[in-house]
């Protein structure tokens, strides 16, 4: 791969920071209440798993 211009740190860590925030929100919300809030946490914790699956699906062959 020909080196392109380097990405700034914010671009490298932008998406990871978003995933991290969603993960933590998912971990905390289920502690606070039962019922609907649990579903919020399931959606949030699905994010890292789905992102990982998508990256593998879209791998460069």
């Amino acid at each position: 791969m020909k080196p392109r211009t380097s990405l700034p740190l914010a671009a490298v860590f932008g998406i990871p920071a978003g995933i991290g925030l969603v993960t933590v929100a998912g971990l905390v919300t289920a502690l606070l209440d039962d019922g609907l809030v649990d579903a919020v946490s399931w959606v949030a914790l699905s994010v890292p798993v789905l992102v990982a699956a998508r990256s593998w699906w879209k791998r460069q062959r």
């Binding site: 080196p3 490298v12 990871p16 998508r54 879209k58 791998r59």
Partner: peptide
Amino acid sequence: LYAPFMRKLSFGTVRAG
């Protein structure tokens, strides 16, 4: 270490080929 590795790659890149 993720930073220097990913400087020239977009997020989630997996070079499998």
